[in-house]
């Protein structure tokens, strides 16, 4: 195994991590602001992919599919938050069961609407070229995923750190009661964040659909990995989600390449360990 092996594996790990960031950042935001453990987050990811497939089928435009899919999923998230989750207050157990109930509903609905075939989102040909750099083959789509995650991450960071809205969100994460005290409408913030989280998951579903496929079962397959990202990075922290995604992406990649027999163990055992030592994750705030 020469340096090329390590380099390409690192690149693959980073690109996988980039996809995980799109998935995990939303989950992390939702948790940070609302303390909601959203088990339908994997469903948002899958539904995003399916909506995109329908848009592509109807219009033939992949570019158009991205915003439409992400916005539709944001709407689904918004409705779920307004109509159901808000009524539960801060009871993690009931949130878990409610969101898992929705995950089952979404699973069956997707099967009834889009059928059970394995599908694939085909991105424009310009993104599926492969760049050859110094003898390394860098698939264009992986590069695109990294660029997309970086762009989204940057936008999120700018919004969170440099806008009034971001300041209000941060205040709500730190102390919701205090935030209400200074006149921040935390209910509105929660709604916004939940919709944003769903938006990011839907977006991830479209981008991921070109790389992982779109098929029934993807929802529950991707969900625990999203949790690994959020748990390792720390819940409620954008930077944590970024670093968590990279760590999980790279660790999972090397774990599978070097110790394939225990690959799932290499993902979940560190997750449990980190939780035990630092329950709030590497970068989470108490």
């Amino acid at each position: 195994m020469d340096w090329r092996f390590w380099l390409i594996q690192t690149f693959n790990g980073i690109s996988y991590g980039a996809l995980l960031f799109l998935l995990g950042s939303g989950l992390s935001l939702i948790f940070g602001v609302m303390r909601i453990v959203n088990l339908s987050h994997g469903s948002y990811f899958l539904l995003g992919g399916y909506v995109a497939l329908s848009v592509i089928l109807a219009t033939g435009s992949w570019v158009l599919a991205i915003p439409i899919a992400a916005l539709s999923i944001a709407l689904v998230g918004l409705l779920m938050e307004r109509l159901f989750l808000r009524r539960l207050g801060f009871d993690p157990l009931r949130q878990v069961l409610l969101t898992v109930g929705f995950a089952f509903l979404f699973q069956q609905a997707a099967l009834d609407i889009w059928g059970g075939d394995n599908r694939d989102i085909v991105p424009p040909a310009s993104l599926t070229q492969t760049a050859v750099v110094g003898g390394l083959h860098l698939p264009g789509y992986r590069v695109f995923m990294i660029a997309m995650a970086a762009a989204i991450g940057l936008i999120l960071w700018l919004v969170m750190e440099h806008t009034r809205l971001g300041a209000a969100v941060r205040a709500t994460v730190d102390d919701a009661q205090m935030a209400r005290g200074v006149g921040i409408d935390t209910s509105r913030i929660s709604m916004f964040i939940f919709a944003l989280g769903a938006f990011l998951a839907g977006l991830g579903g479209v981008i991921g659909g070109g790389f992982l496929g779109v098929y029934p079962g993807l929802d529950f397959q991707i969900l625990p990995i999203a949790f690994a990202v959020v748990i390792i990075g720390g819940m409620g922290s954008l930077g944590g989600a970024a670093i968590g995604s990279l760590l999980v992406g790279i660790a999972d990649n090397f774990g599978k390449a070097l110790f394939p027999e225990i690959s799932y163990f290499t993902l979940y055992a560190p997750m449990a360990l980190i939780l035990a030592v630092r329950p709030t994750g590497l970068f989470g705030r108490e």
Partner: peptide, 17 residues
């Protein structure tokens, strides 16, 4: 012989080997 786990969809770790 390379054995990716059942259900693998990212073959990034395996293809370079």
């Amino acid at each position: 012989k390379i054995w990716p786990p059942l259900g693998t969809i990212d073959f990034g770790p395996f293809i370079p080997t």
